[in-house]
Design a protein around this nucleic acid. Structure first.
Length: 423
RNA sequence: GGUGAGAUGCCUGAGUGGCCGAAAGGAACGGUUUGCUAAACCGUCGUACGGGUUAAACUGUACCGAGGGUUCGAAUCCCUCUCUCACCGCCA
Protein backbone atom coordinates (compact mmCIF):
# COMPACT_ATOMS: atom_id res chain seq x y z
CA UNK A 1 0.00 0.00 0.00
CA UNK A 2 1.32 3.41 -0.94
CA UNK A 3 1.73 6.01 1.79
CA UNK A 4 -0.75 8.85 1.74
CA UNK A 5 1.86 11.44 2.64
CA UNK A 6 4.07 10.25 -0.18
CA UNK A 7 1.19 10.62 -2.60
CA UNK A 8 0.43 14.10 -1.31
CA UNK A 9 3.99 15.28 -1.66
CA UNK A 10 4.72 13.60 -4.99
CA UNK A 11 1.46 13.76 -6.85
CA UNK A 12 2.95 14.37 -10.32
CA UNK A 13 5.54 11.68 -9.91
CA UNK A 14 2.96 9.18 -8.67
CA UNK A 15 0.77 9.82 -11.71
CA UNK A 16 3.70 9.45 -14.06
CA UNK A 17 4.89 6.22 -12.43
CA UNK A 18 1.41 4.70 -12.41
CA UNK A 19 1.38 5.39 -16.14
CA UNK A 20 4.40 3.14 -16.59
CA UNK A 21 2.39 0.35 -15.00
CA UNK A 22 -0.45 1.15 -17.41
CA UNK A 23 -2.68 1.99 -14.51
CA UNK A 24 -5.74 3.70 -15.90
CA UNK A 25 -7.80 4.95 -12.96
CA UNK A 26 -5.57 7.91 -12.21
CA UNK A 27 -8.51 9.86 -10.77
CA UNK A 28 -8.03 7.75 -7.67
CA UNK A 29 -4.86 9.65 -6.83
CA UNK A 30 -6.65 12.95 -6.45
CA UNK A 31 -9.45 11.19 -4.67
CA UNK A 32 -6.94 9.94 -2.11
CA UNK A 33 -5.73 13.47 -1.52
CA UNK A 34 -9.18 14.97 -1.12
CA UNK A 35 -10.34 12.15 1.13
CA UNK A 36 -7.27 12.68 3.25
CA UNK A 37 -8.03 16.41 3.47
CA UNK A 38 -11.51 15.52 4.59
CA UNK A 39 -10.13 13.04 7.10
CA UNK A 40 -7.88 15.68 8.64
CA UNK A 41 -10.67 18.19 8.84
CA UNK A 42 -12.97 15.70 10.57
CA UNK A 43 -10.29 14.60 12.95
CA UNK A 44 -9.49 18.12 14.05
CA UNK A 45 -13.14 18.83 14.74
CA UNK A 46 -13.59 15.52 16.49
CA UNK A 47 -10.51 16.02 18.65
CA UNK A 48 -11.58 19.47 19.72
CA UNK A 49 -15.02 18.32 20.74
CA UNK A 50 -13.66 15.29 22.50
CA UNK A 51 -11.19 17.48 24.38
CA UNK A 52 -14.11 19.53 25.65
CA UNK A 53 -15.92 16.40 26.81
CA UNK A 54 -12.82 15.12 28.56
CA UNK A 55 -12.11 18.29 30.48
CA UNK A 56 -15.77 18.78 31.41
CA UNK A 57 -15.93 15.21 32.69
CA UNK A 58 -12.97 15.85 34.93
CA UNK A 59 -14.58 18.95 36.24
CA UNK A 60 -17.80 17.10 36.95
CA UNK A 61 -15.86 14.68 39.11
CA UNK A 62 -14.42 17.54 41.14
CA UNK A 63 -17.73 19.32 41.50
CA UNK A 64 -19.34 16.11 42.74
CA UNK A 65 -16.68 15.77 45.39
CA UNK A 66 -17.34 19.32 46.53
CA UNK A 67 -21.04 18.53 46.64
CA UNK A 68 -21.87 21.09 43.97
CA UNK A 69 -24.66 19.14 42.33
CA UNK A 70 -26.13 21.98 40.34
CA UNK A 71 -22.79 22.84 38.79
CA UNK A 72 -22.26 19.21 37.88
CA UNK A 73 -25.66 18.93 36.27
CA UNK A 74 -25.04 22.02 34.21
CA UNK A 75 -21.79 20.60 32.91
CA UNK A 76 -23.46 17.29 32.15
CA UNK A 77 -25.80 19.13 29.85
CA UNK A 78 -22.84 20.70 28.12
CA UNK A 79 -21.20 17.31 27.65
CA UNK A 80 -24.41 15.93 26.24
CA UNK A 81 -24.52 18.61 23.58
CA UNK A 82 -20.88 18.13 22.66
CA UNK A 83 -21.51 14.41 22.37
CA UNK A 84 -24.38 15.06 20.04
CA UNK A 85 -21.92 16.86 17.76
CA UNK A 86 -19.33 14.12 18.08
CA UNK A 87 -21.54 11.20 17.18
CA UNK A 88 -22.04 12.05 13.50
CA UNK A 89 -18.41 13.15 13.22
CA UNK A 90 -17.31 9.75 14.38
CA UNK A 91 -19.41 8.04 11.75
CA UNK A 92 -18.13 10.30 9.02
CA UNK A 93 -14.57 9.68 10.10
CA UNK A 94 -14.98 5.93 10.02
CA UNK A 95 -16.58 6.13 6.63
CA UNK A 96 -13.96 8.46 5.15
CA UNK A 97 -11.15 6.34 6.55
CA UNK A 98 -12.64 3.23 5.03
CA UNK A 99 -13.07 4.90 1.64
CA UNK A 100 -9.48 6.06 1.82
CA UNK A 101 -8.11 2.61 2.63
CA UNK A 102 -10.28 0.99 -0.01
CA UNK A 103 -8.84 3.26 -2.66
CA UNK A 104 -5.29 2.90 -1.42
CA UNK A 105 -5.69 -0.86 -1.74
CA UNK A 106 -6.50 -0.40 -5.41
CA UNK A 107 -3.33 1.52 -6.21
CA UNK A 108 -0.43 -0.69 -7.30
CA UNK A 109 3.13 -0.10 -6.24
CA UNK A 110 5.09 2.47 -8.23
CA UNK A 111 7.63 0.99 -10.62
CA UNK A 112 11.28 1.94 -10.06
CA UNK A 113 12.90 4.39 -12.48
CA UNK A 114 14.76 1.60 -14.24
CA UNK A 115 11.58 -0.31 -15.16
CA UNK A 116 11.05 -0.39 -18.93
CA UNK A 117 7.80 0.89 -20.35
CA UNK A 118 5.67 -1.73 -21.99
CA UNK A 119 2.46 -3.67 -21.82
CA UNK A 120 3.20 -7.25 -22.76
CA UNK A 121 5.79 -9.87 -21.82
CA UNK A 122 7.44 -9.28 -25.22
CA UNK A 123 8.56 -5.89 -23.95
CA UNK A 124 10.51 -7.28 -21.03
CA UNK A 125 14.24 -6.64 -21.25
CA UNK A 126 16.66 -9.52 -21.34
CA UNK A 127 19.35 -8.58 -18.85
CA UNK A 128 21.62 -11.62 -19.02
CA UNK A 129 21.76 -15.12 -20.38
CA UNK A 130 23.76 -18.06 -19.16
CA UNK A 131 24.30 -21.73 -19.65
CA UNK A 132 24.13 -23.54 -22.94
CA UNK A 133 21.08 -24.61 -24.83
CA UNK A 134 21.67 -28.33 -25.42
CA UNK A 135 21.30 -30.15 -28.70
CA UNK A 136 19.00 -33.05 -27.97
CA UNK A 137 19.39 -36.47 -29.47
CA UNK A 138 16.99 -37.42 -32.24
CA UNK A 139 14.43 -39.30 -30.16
CA UNK A 140 14.09 -36.59 -27.53
CA UNK A 141 10.59 -36.04 -26.15
CA UNK A 142 8.86 -33.45 -23.93
CA UNK A 143 8.92 -33.95 -20.19
CA UNK A 144 5.34 -35.23 -19.94
CA UNK A 145 6.42 -38.28 -21.92
CA UNK A 146 9.55 -38.72 -19.83
CA UNK A 147 7.59 -38.60 -16.59
CA UNK A 148 5.45 -41.45 -17.91
CA UNK A 149 8.36 -43.40 -19.35
CA UNK A 150 10.26 -43.40 -16.03
CA UNK A 151 7.13 -43.42 -13.86
CA UNK A 152 8.02 -40.15 -12.15
CA UNK A 153 4.71 -38.33 -12.16
CA UNK A 154 1.17 -39.68 -12.47
CA UNK A 155 -1.09 -36.92 -13.72
CA UNK A 156 -4.16 -39.10 -14.21
CA UNK A 157 -3.94 -40.41 -10.67
CA UNK A 158 -3.83 -36.85 -9.35
CA UNK A 159 -6.92 -36.04 -11.39
CA UNK A 160 -8.68 -39.01 -9.86
CA UNK A 161 -7.72 -38.11 -6.31
CA UNK A 162 -8.21 -34.36 -6.54
CA UNK A 163 -8.45 -32.83 -9.99
CA UNK A 164 -6.32 -31.66 -12.88
CA UNK A 165 -3.24 -29.74 -11.90
CA UNK A 166 -2.62 -31.85 -8.80
CA UNK A 167 0.01 -34.34 -9.92
CA UNK A 168 1.14 -37.36 -7.92
CA UNK A 169 4.90 -37.81 -7.83
CA UNK A 170 5.96 -41.40 -7.54
CA UNK A 171 9.18 -43.32 -6.94
CA UNK A 172 12.20 -41.47 -8.29
CA UNK A 173 9.96 -38.58 -9.25
CA UNK A 174 9.03 -38.11 -5.60
CA UNK A 175 12.62 -38.47 -4.53
CA UNK A 176 13.76 -35.92 -7.08
CA UNK A 177 11.35 -33.41 -5.57
CA UNK A 178 12.66 -34.09 -2.10
CA UNK A 179 16.27 -33.85 -3.29
CA UNK A 180 15.70 -30.52 -4.99
CA UNK A 181 13.96 -29.03 -1.96
CA UNK A 182 16.79 -30.17 0.27
CA UNK A 183 19.43 -28.86 -2.13
CA UNK A 184 17.77 -25.47 -2.48
CA UNK A 185 17.29 -25.02 1.25
CA UNK A 186 20.89 -25.98 1.95
CA UNK A 187 22.06 -23.58 -0.73
CA UNK A 188 20.02 -20.76 0.82
CA UNK A 189 20.94 -21.39 4.44
CA UNK A 190 24.60 -21.53 3.44
CA UNK A 191 24.14 -17.98 2.15
CA UNK A 192 22.83 -16.86 5.54
CA UNK A 193 19.09 -17.32 5.11
CA UNK A 194 17.29 -18.54 8.22
CA UNK A 195 15.00 -21.46 7.51
CA UNK A 196 11.29 -21.49 8.30
CA UNK A 197 8.64 -24.14 7.79
CA UNK A 198 5.49 -22.03 7.88
CA UNK A 199 1.77 -22.84 7.99
CA UNK A 200 0.35 -23.58 4.57
CA UNK A 201 -2.83 -21.71 5.33
CA UNK A 202 -3.07 -18.10 6.43
CA UNK A 203 -5.75 -15.87 7.83
CA UNK A 204 -7.21 -12.88 6.07
CA UNK A 205 -4.93 -10.38 7.78
CA UNK A 206 -1.81 -12.10 6.52
CA UNK A 207 -3.19 -12.26 2.99
CA UNK A 208 -3.81 -8.51 3.15
CA UNK A 209 -0.43 -7.92 4.68
CA UNK A 210 1.52 -9.08 1.68
CA UNK A 211 -0.99 -7.75 -0.82
CA UNK A 212 -2.60 -10.97 -2.11
CA UNK A 213 -5.88 -9.54 -0.92
CA UNK A 214 -7.75 -7.83 -2.33
CA UNK A 215 -5.78 -7.98 -5.58
CA UNK A 216 -5.70 -11.74 -6.08
CA UNK A 217 -8.81 -12.81 -4.25
CA UNK A 218 -9.92 -15.25 -6.94
CA UNK A 219 -6.48 -16.80 -7.34
CA UNK A 220 -6.29 -18.28 -3.86
CA UNK A 221 -8.06 -21.34 -2.54
CA UNK A 222 -10.29 -20.23 0.28
CA UNK A 223 -11.27 -22.50 3.17
CA UNK A 224 -14.46 -20.66 3.96
CA UNK A 225 -15.50 -22.54 7.11
CA UNK A 226 -12.52 -21.03 8.93
CA UNK A 227 -11.80 -18.15 6.57
CA UNK A 228 -8.29 -19.36 5.83
CA UNK A 229 -6.49 -19.09 2.52
CA UNK A 230 -4.19 -21.76 1.13
CA UNK A 231 -0.92 -20.01 0.50
CA UNK A 232 -0.01 -19.26 -3.13
CA UNK A 233 3.62 -18.87 -2.04
CA UNK A 234 5.63 -19.08 1.19
CA UNK A 235 6.15 -15.34 0.80
CA UNK A 236 2.79 -14.83 2.49
CA UNK A 237 3.31 -16.60 5.83
CA UNK A 238 7.02 -15.83 6.04
CA UNK A 239 6.84 -12.10 5.30
CA UNK A 240 4.05 -11.90 7.89
CA UNK A 241 6.49 -13.12 10.54
CA UNK A 242 7.38 -9.45 10.82
CA UNK A 243 3.91 -7.97 10.67
CA UNK A 244 3.41 -5.28 13.36
CA UNK A 245 7.00 -5.23 14.52
CA UNK A 246 9.56 -2.55 15.10
CA UNK A 247 13.05 -3.88 14.54
CA UNK A 248 16.34 -2.47 15.67
CA UNK A 249 18.55 -1.18 12.92
CA UNK A 250 21.09 -3.86 13.92
CA UNK A 251 18.54 -6.57 13.22
CA UNK A 252 18.64 -5.73 9.52
CA UNK A 253 18.89 -7.38 7.13
CA UNK A 254 16.52 -10.18 8.04
CA UNK A 255 17.08 -13.11 5.67
CA UNK A 256 14.59 -15.95 5.57
CA UNK A 257 14.01 -18.99 3.43
CA UNK A 258 11.18 -21.48 3.41
CA UNK A 259 9.97 -24.50 1.53
CA UNK A 260 6.24 -24.82 0.98
CA UNK A 261 3.73 -26.24 -1.40
CA UNK A 262 1.96 -23.49 -3.30
CA UNK A 263 -1.71 -23.53 -4.18
CA UNK A 264 -3.04 -21.50 -7.08
CA UNK A 265 -6.40 -21.65 -8.74
CA UNK A 266 -4.96 -20.37 -12.01
CA UNK A 267 -8.40 -19.40 -13.22
CA UNK A 268 -8.41 -18.77 -16.94
CA UNK A 269 -5.36 -20.82 -17.90
CA UNK A 270 -5.61 -23.28 -20.75
CA UNK A 271 -3.92 -24.92 -23.73
CA UNK A 272 -0.28 -25.84 -24.13
CA UNK A 273 0.64 -23.58 -21.24
CA UNK A 274 -0.81 -26.04 -18.81
CA UNK A 275 0.53 -29.25 -20.31
CA UNK A 276 2.51 -31.53 -18.00
CA UNK A 277 4.37 -29.65 -15.31
CA UNK A 278 4.12 -26.25 -16.95
CA UNK A 279 1.28 -24.95 -14.83
CA UNK A 280 -0.19 -26.62 -11.78
CA UNK A 281 -2.65 -25.93 -8.99
CA UNK A 282 -0.27 -27.34 -6.42
CA UNK A 283 3.49 -27.19 -6.70
CA UNK A 284 6.57 -27.09 -4.53
CA UNK A 285 8.71 -24.05 -4.11
CA UNK A 286 11.55 -22.74 -1.98
CA UNK A 287 11.39 -19.02 -1.35
CA UNK A 288 13.87 -16.43 -0.12
CA UNK A 289 12.72 -13.30 1.66
CA UNK A 290 14.61 -10.31 2.99
CA UNK A 291 13.60 -7.37 5.15
CA UNK A 292 16.17 -4.63 4.81
CA UNK A 293 17.13 -1.02 5.42
CA UNK A 294 15.47 1.18 2.79
CA UNK A 295 18.85 2.45 1.56
CA UNK A 296 19.99 -1.08 0.84
CA UNK A 297 17.09 -2.68 -0.95
CA UNK A 298 18.35 -2.30 -4.52
CA UNK A 299 21.78 -3.55 -3.62
CA UNK A 300 20.10 -6.51 -1.91
CA UNK A 301 17.91 -7.11 -4.95
CA UNK A 302 21.04 -7.48 -7.06
CA UNK A 303 22.49 -9.90 -4.53
CA UNK A 304 19.35 -11.98 -4.56
CA UNK A 305 19.40 -12.08 -8.34
CA UNK A 306 23.00 -13.29 -8.27
CA UNK A 307 22.10 -15.85 -5.63
CA UNK A 308 19.34 -17.35 -7.74
CA UNK A 309 21.54 -17.16 -10.80
CA UNK A 310 24.27 -19.19 -9.14
CA UNK A 311 21.70 -21.74 -8.08
CA UNK A 312 20.66 -22.16 -11.71
CA UNK A 313 24.28 -22.40 -12.72
CA UNK A 314 24.82 -25.19 -10.26
CA UNK A 315 21.94 -27.02 -11.92
CA UNK A 316 23.66 -26.45 -15.27
CA UNK A 317 20.49 -25.19 -16.88
CA UNK A 318 20.39 -22.62 -19.70
CA UNK A 319 18.72 -19.51 -18.31
CA UNK A 320 18.01 -15.91 -18.98
CA UNK A 321 17.15 -13.03 -16.70
CA UNK A 322 14.48 -10.53 -17.64
CA UNK A 323 13.72 -7.14 -16.26
CA UNK A 324 9.96 -6.96 -16.37
CA UNK A 325 8.28 -4.06 -18.10
CA UNK A 326 5.63 -2.00 -16.32
CA UNK A 327 2.73 -3.91 -17.81
CA UNK A 328 4.02 -7.35 -16.88
CA UNK A 329 4.94 -6.55 -13.29
CA UNK A 330 3.01 -7.66 -10.28
CA UNK A 331 0.74 -5.35 -8.32
CA UNK A 332 3.02 -5.05 -5.30
CA UNK A 333 6.40 -4.85 -6.98
CA UNK A 334 8.66 -1.87 -7.68
CA UNK A 335 11.17 -3.86 -9.71
CA UNK A 336 11.07 -7.49 -10.75
CA UNK A 337 13.56 -9.81 -12.39
CA UNK A 338 12.18 -13.01 -13.84
CA UNK A 339 14.32 -16.07 -14.39
CA UNK A 340 13.51 -18.42 -17.21
CA UNK A 341 15.09 -21.74 -18.06
CA UNK A 342 15.07 -23.23 -21.51
CA UNK A 343 12.97 -26.30 -21.95
CA UNK A 344 14.77 -27.89 -24.87
CA UNK A 345 12.13 -30.37 -25.98
CA UNK A 346 9.29 -27.87 -25.77
CA UNK A 347 11.62 -25.30 -27.33
CA UNK A 348 10.41 -22.56 -25.04
CA UNK A 349 11.45 -20.57 -22.00
CA UNK A 350 9.78 -21.37 -18.71
CA UNK A 351 9.62 -18.98 -15.77
CA UNK A 352 11.16 -20.55 -12.69
CA UNK A 353 11.78 -17.60 -10.44
CA UNK A 354 10.70 -14.06 -9.89
CA UNK A 355 12.78 -11.81 -7.68
CA UNK A 356 11.25 -8.51 -6.61
CA UNK A 357 11.83 -5.45 -4.53
CA UNK A 358 8.60 -4.23 -2.97
CA UNK A 359 10.25 -1.26 -1.30
CA UNK A 360 7.83 -0.24 1.47
CA UNK A 361 4.66 -1.26 -0.32
CA UNK A 362 4.26 -4.46 1.69
CA UNK A 363 5.87 -3.19 4.87
CA UNK A 364 3.53 -0.20 5.00
CA UNK A 365 0.62 -2.57 5.01
CA UNK A 366 2.42 -4.96 7.38
CA UNK A 367 3.64 -2.19 9.67
CA UNK A 368 7.10 -3.65 9.62
CA UNK A 369 9.37 -0.84 10.76
CA UNK A 370 12.70 -0.16 12.39
CA UNK A 371 14.22 2.53 14.56
CA UNK A 372 16.99 4.35 12.74
CA UNK A 373 20.11 5.86 14.27
CA UNK A 374 18.22 9.02 15.22
CA UNK A 375 15.58 7.03 17.03
CA UNK A 376 13.03 7.69 14.31
CA UNK A 377 10.72 4.90 13.29
CA UNK A 378 10.60 4.24 9.58
CA UNK A 379 9.41 1.54 7.24
CA UNK A 380 11.72 -1.25 6.16
CA UNK A 381 11.84 -2.56 2.60
CA UNK A 382 10.88 -6.12 1.74
CA UNK A 383 12.06 -8.34 -1.08
CA UNK A 384 11.49 -11.87 -2.13
CA UNK A 385 12.29 -14.38 -4.79
CA UNK A 386 11.83 -18.00 -5.66
CA UNK A 387 14.83 -20.17 -5.27
CA UNK A 388 13.35 -22.08 -6.86
CA UNK A 389 9.95 -23.29 -8.10
CA UNK A 390 10.26 -27.01 -8.74
CA UNK A 391 7.98 -28.18 -11.54
CA UNK A 392 9.53 -26.28 -14.41
CA UNK A 393 12.99 -26.93 -13.10
CA UNK A 394 12.12 -30.62 -13.18
CA UNK A 395 10.67 -30.25 -16.67
CA UNK A 396 13.83 -28.73 -18.06
CA UNK A 397 16.14 -31.02 -16.09
CA UNK A 398 14.37 -33.99 -17.61
CA UNK A 399 14.17 -32.65 -21.14
CA UNK A 400 17.61 -31.10 -21.39
CA UNK A 401 19.45 -34.04 -19.89
CA UNK A 402 17.69 -36.93 -21.58
CA UNK A 403 19.81 -39.44 -23.41
CA UNK A 404 19.37 -42.90 -24.81
CA UNK A 405 20.18 -44.56 -21.46
CA UNK A 406 18.27 -42.22 -19.15
CA UNK A 407 18.36 -38.76 -17.64
CA UNK A 408 21.77 -37.58 -16.47
CA UNK A 409 21.46 -35.30 -13.48
CA UNK A 410 23.85 -32.41 -12.78
CA UNK A 411 26.67 -33.16 -10.35
CA UNK A 412 25.23 -30.89 -7.66
CA UNK A 413 22.29 -33.26 -7.23
CA UNK A 414 24.08 -36.62 -7.18
CA UNK A 415 24.49 -36.80 -3.43
CA UNK A 416 21.03 -35.49 -2.72
CA UNK A 417 19.38 -37.83 -5.18
CA UNK A 418 21.63 -40.76 -4.38
CA UNK A 419 22.33 -41.40 -8.05
CA UNK A 420 23.56 -39.60 -11.15
CA UNK A 421 20.96 -40.96 -13.47
CA UNK A 422 17.24 -41.64 -13.73
CA UNK A 423 16.56 -44.72 -15.81
C1' G B 1 -15.64 -30.65 21.59
C1' G B 2 -16.64 -29.71 27.36
C1' U B 3 -15.38 -27.02 31.95
C1' G B 4 -12.54 -23.38 34.46
C1' A B 5 -8.84 -19.33 34.61
C1' G B 6 -6.71 -15.52 32.01
C1' A B 7 -5.18 -11.58 27.97
C1' U B 8 -1.95 -4.62 30.67
C1' G B 9 4.01 -1.23 27.72
C1' C B 10 10.47 -4.99 25.18
C1' C B 11 9.73 -8.78 29.52
C1' U B 12 7.72 -9.82 34.56
C1' G B 13 3.79 -7.64 36.94
C1' A B 14 0.40 -3.92 39.97
C1' G B 15 -3.97 -1.44 39.05
C1' U B 16 -11.58 -3.31 39.98
C1' G B 17 -15.10 3.67 37.84
C1' G B 18 -12.31 10.07 37.91
C1' C B 19 -5.84 11.78 40.92
C1' C B 20 -3.89 6.08 35.02
C1' G B 21 -0.75 6.37 29.11
C1' A B 22 -0.76 3.37 33.34
C1' A B 23 3.05 1.60 39.92
C1' A B 24 7.26 -1.51 40.74
C1' G B 25 11.20 -4.65 39.12
C1' G B 26 14.06 -6.39 35.06
C1' A B 27 16.11 -5.75 30.12
C1' A B 28 17.84 -2.04 26.70
C1' C B 29 20.03 2.78 25.63
C1' G B 30 22.83 7.46 27.23
C1' G B 31 25.88 9.58 31.10
C1' U B 32 28.89 9.94 35.79
C1' U B 33 32.19 7.35 38.82
C1' U B 34 35.37 3.40 39.53
C1' G B 35 38.08 -0.05 37.09
C1' C B 36 38.73 -4.72 34.57
C1' U B 37 35.83 -8.65 31.74
C1' A B 38 31.58 -6.11 36.64
C1' A B 39 29.17 -2.90 40.31
C1' A B 40 26.96 1.73 42.07
C1' C B 41 24.41 6.19 40.94
C1' C B 42 21.69 9.62 37.53
C1' G B 43 18.81 10.07 33.17
C1' U B 44 16.08 8.09 28.85
C1' C B 45 12.98 4.25 27.76
C1' G B 46 5.10 3.20 23.80
C1' U B 47 2.37 3.54 19.03
C1' A B 48 -0.83 5.99 15.56
C1' C B 49 -3.32 10.26 13.72
C1' G B 50 -3.85 15.68 14.15
C1' G B 51 -2.40 21.01 15.56
C1' G B 52 2.16 23.73 15.88
C1' U B 53 7.46 24.78 14.31
C1' U B 54 12.45 25.97 9.14
C1' A B 55 13.27 21.91 12.59
C1' A B 56 12.43 21.31 17.67
C1' A B 57 9.92 22.72 22.02
C1' C B 58 4.99 22.48 23.02
C1' U B 59 0.09 20.55 22.43
C1' G B 60 -4.92 17.61 21.17
C1' U B 61 -7.14 12.80 20.35
C1' A B 62 -7.18 7.50 20.28
C1' C B 63 -5.14 2.91 21.94
C1' C B 64 -4.34 -1.65 28.50
C1' G B 65 -6.39 -8.91 23.02
C1' A B 66 -10.62 -7.30 19.05
C1' G B 67 -15.53 -5.29 18.43
C1' G B 68 -19.90 -3.30 20.69
C1' G B 69 -22.60 -1.37 25.21
C1' U B 70 -23.51 1.22 30.19
C1' U B 71 -21.77 6.12 32.32
C1' C B 72 -20.85 13.08 32.76
C1' G B 73 -16.32 9.82 33.03
C1' A B 74 -13.94 2.84 31.68
C1' A B 75 -7.66 -0.68 31.68
C1' U B 76 -11.41 -1.13 35.63
C1' C B 77 -18.70 -2.72 34.91
C1' C B 78 -21.83 -5.57 30.92
C1' C B 79 -22.22 -8.38 26.07
C1' U B 80 -19.99 -10.86 21.73
C1' C B 81 -15.69 -12.72 19.42
C1' U B 82 -10.53 -14.27 19.12
C1' C B 83 -6.45 -16.22 21.43
C1' U B 84 -3.56 -18.40 25.68
C1' C B 85 -3.19 -21.67 29.88
C1' A B 86 -5.13 -25.90 32.97
C1' C B 87 -8.12 -30.26 33.35
C1' C B 88 -11.44 -33.75 30.76
C1' G B 89 -12.82 -36.04 25.96
C1' C B 90 -10.99 -37.38 21.08
C1' C B 91 -6.72 -38.17 18.23
C1' A B 92 -1.66 -38.35 14.17
Amino acid sequence: MLQVNYIRQNRENVLERLGVKNFKETDLVDEVISLDDERKRLQLEFDNNQARVNSASKEIGMLMKQGNKDGAEALKAEVASAKATIEPLKEQMTSVEKQLTDILLLLPNLPAAIVPKGKTPEENEVVREGGEIPTLYENAVPHWELTTKYKLVDFELGTKITGSGFPVYTGKGAKLQRSLVQFFLDFNTAAGYHEYLPPFMVNEESAYGTGQLPDKEGQMYHATADNFYLIPTAEVPVTNVYRDTILKEDDLPVKMTAYSPCFRREAGSYGKDVRGLNRLHQFEKVEIIQIVHPDKSYEVLDNMVKHVESLLQSLELPYRILRLCGGDMGFTSALTYDFEVYSAAQKRWLEVSSVSNFENFQTNRLKCRFKDANGKTQLTHSLNGSSLALPRIVASLLENNQQEDGIHLPASLHNYFGSSIIN
